[in-house]
Amino acid sequence: MAEYRTHMKIIGDILATTRDDLQDEDGASVTYLIRKANISHSRISTILKTLVTQGLLEKTDNRGSNRYKISGSGREFLQAYYTFTNFADNFGLVI
């Protein structure tokens, strides 16, 4: 059975991919993120837009295609996400 993921967990997965699992120095393409984060195109587009607006991701234009890299704020957010995921786990909860 497929595991249910909260919105927060999906954001965590996207940020973790852009931090740890980049294709090249320019960042990850949308297609790559869709595959790694296991999410639909329409849903990831909205999330990526929000993450860029929030300053958690940096968008770069590489020969006509958009690439995404994690920003400094994104790294801090991801660290907080992992810390408090562990905190909520203690209570048997998912953030």
Partner: peptide, 16 residues
């Protein structure tokens, strides 16, 4: 929990 909520915006942490 409040620090966690301010850092992540998680509703679960808000309830906690």
């Amino acid at each position: 929990s409040y620090i966690g909520f301010r850092n992540t915006g998680s509703p679960t942490l808000f309830r906690l």
